[in-house]
Amino acid sequence: MRHSPYGGALARAAIDMAMAMGAFEQDFELLFMGTGVLQLLDDQDSHQIGLRNAGRLLSSLPLYDVERVFVDADALQHHGIGLSDLVVPAEPLDAAAIRDLLGSADHLVSY
């Protein structure tokens, strides 16, 4: 998940994809990278821009059987976000751990 929540349509499309994977009982994990970490912010209000609240959508992820949620630690630091600011529990990963995670997947869906 690499896109900021409201800058384009792809962040929302990726959230829909994650929920579909859960609904189809896929074995998958989510990684938020770059400006994509902004999707995870707990305190979001998108009402005035007429878009669905990305944080609220993501807060229902545990219902979709996502195995684990990971977050790019450098991106969190870059945006001044702490783990306690996130809407779902996420495990921070450094660059080496991100490489290992991506290398371990059968398929990557990245946008």
Partner: peptide, 21 residues
């Protein structure tokens, strides 16, 4: 059609290649 068609195809594929994003 729905996202299920994508997931089904990815399940059976050796490789997924994404263009754009």
């Amino acid at each position: 059609s729905g996202l299920g068609q994508f997931i089904d195809a990815t399940d059976r594929a050796d490789r997924l290649v994404t263009f754009g994003g």
